[in-house]
């Protein structure tokens, strides 16, 4: 199958990639770009472990053909925070015990970040509603919800700490 050129901004860097028309974004991220933080959990859009941000919105990398993201901006877990410093939401997850086995964590963090951009002060119900596409089998979600809520409070209390 003939490869096509796409231009995408991944974690802030513009990349030119040659991809086959049937390459899934998940496989391109993992196998071609070595961005292993995006996880395979089911391959059919049911678990949320492969959640990435596509132009700031949550998207499931296992359901998206890489050719279709030409010109778009992708954030994976490797693009959250910067190498030297954790993103405040990552800090909050760690502090609240929201990370157990860690396999859902990248997807949960990106979903959490997207939520806080859309709605800087969500209530518990809104957080749970937003996370309903991201499964977690370890935590029972309680710590994850608390971590997001706590970070929302921090952001609204001190607008200076808002990320980006």
């Amino acid at each position: 199958m003939e490869k096509r050129l796409i231009k995408v901004t991944i974690n802030g860097k513009l990349r030119e990639l040659f991809v086959k028309p049937n390459d899934l974004l998940l496989n391109v991220l993992r196998n071609d770009l070595n961005l292993m933080g995006t996880k395979y959990g089911c391959g059919i859009g049911e678990c949320g472990a492969c959640t990435v941000l596509l132009d700031g919105q949550t998207a499931l990398a296992c359901l998206i053909l890489a050719v279709t993201v030409d010109g778009q901006e992708i954030t994976t877990i490797e693009g959250m925070g910067d190498p030297a410093q954790l993103h405040p939401l990552q800090e909050s997850f760690i502090e609240h015990g929201a990370v157990q086995c860690g396999f859902c964590t990248p997807g949960m963090l990106l979903a959490g970040e997207a939520l806080l951009k859309e709605n800087p002060n969500p209530n518990e119900e809104e957080i749970r509603e937003y996370l309903r596409g991201n499964l977690c089998r370890c935590t029972g979600y309680a710590a994850i919800v608390k971590a997001i809520k706590s970070e929302a409070k921090c952001q609204s209390a001190d607008p200076g700490t808002l990320s980006e």
Binding site: M36, G37, Y40, I77, Q90, I94, T105
Partner: peptide
Amino acid sequence: PKFDAYTKAKGTIAYADD
């Protein structure tokens, strides 16, 4: 916090398939 939570939150921990 667990020491392993940091690398897990950064997405850099190498699970079996990684």
